[in-house]
Design a protein around this nucleic acid. Structure first.
Length: 205
DNA sequence: ATCAAGATTACCT
DNA sequence: GGTAATCTTGATA
């Protein structure tokens, strides 16, 4: 990492705070994965959704602990990765403390570094146009494909060296849009989707 | 053992 | 705007 103050890794204390606070503050943060050959893939988080098993029927943790959702019941600052629709992985950042069952789904990322490798991961080619760049990681399944995140990353400690977040300037409240969540059929009324206003890498307007 | 649902995406009209 | 693709998981028997 560099000497820039902005290259400071987020601490455990950042993640163990209250769910909706963490969800909104994750916007604008830099998401980083270091691959085995030390290649850096990174991007800016531009869209998230909050899930809270204590009150939210759409959360995987609503009906209690299972082998699948075990990581989401752990301490904040770990990655919860799940497989869905037989094809896609989605990644979440666990928040709060043990046994709370709360996490933030990362729904869209603006690619910053390692774009060539992301293009290979997503489209099997090493050059892309502007339209394809906007389509690279603007969805939870897409960003996992671009970043090469699979179930082997489930439970990864975000204070470690494989995947982590770097602090950035907080997005001001007036630039955060709040809406209902996408792709769910229960607790649809909760306004727990957050995204950066006017950002072209958000999944759905 | 069987089965329906799913925090999605790509492609079609 | 509609829908097929694809398979793990958790619930039920």
């Amino acid at each position: 990492m560099g000497k820039n103050i902005k290259d400071k890794k987020l601490s455990r204390d950042f993640y163990t705070r209250e769910l909706l606070t963490v969800a909104k503050e994750l916007l604008g943060k830099k998401f980083v994965r270091l691959s085995n050959n030390n290649l850096m893939l990174s991007g800016k988080i531009v869209e998230v959704e909050a899930y809270d098993g204590s009150v939210d029927q759409a959360a995987h943790t609503f009906k209690g602990k299972t082998p699948r959702n075990e990581v989401m019941f752990g301490q904040g600052g770990y990655l919860y990765v799940y497989f869905t629709y037989g094809m896609y992985y989605c990644c979440n950042i666990v928040t709060g403390n043990e046994n709370e069952g709360k996490a933030v789904l990362i729904r869209a990322i603006e690619p910053l570094e390692g774009i060539v490798q992301m293009a290979v991961n997503r489209f099997q080619k090493d050059f892309i146009n502007d339209k394809e760049l906007r389509n690279l990681a603007n969805g939870p399944g897409k960003l996992c494909m671009a970043f090469g995140i699979t179930k082997e990353y489930n439970g990864t400690d975000l204070l470690g060296e494989r995947i982590f977040l770097l602090d950035q300037k907080k997005i001001p409240e007036e630039n955060i849009i709040s809406t209902t969540r996408i792709g769910i059929t229960k607790s649809v009324e909760l306004p727990w989707r957050f995204y950066i206003k006017n950002n072209p890498y958000v999944s759905h307007r």
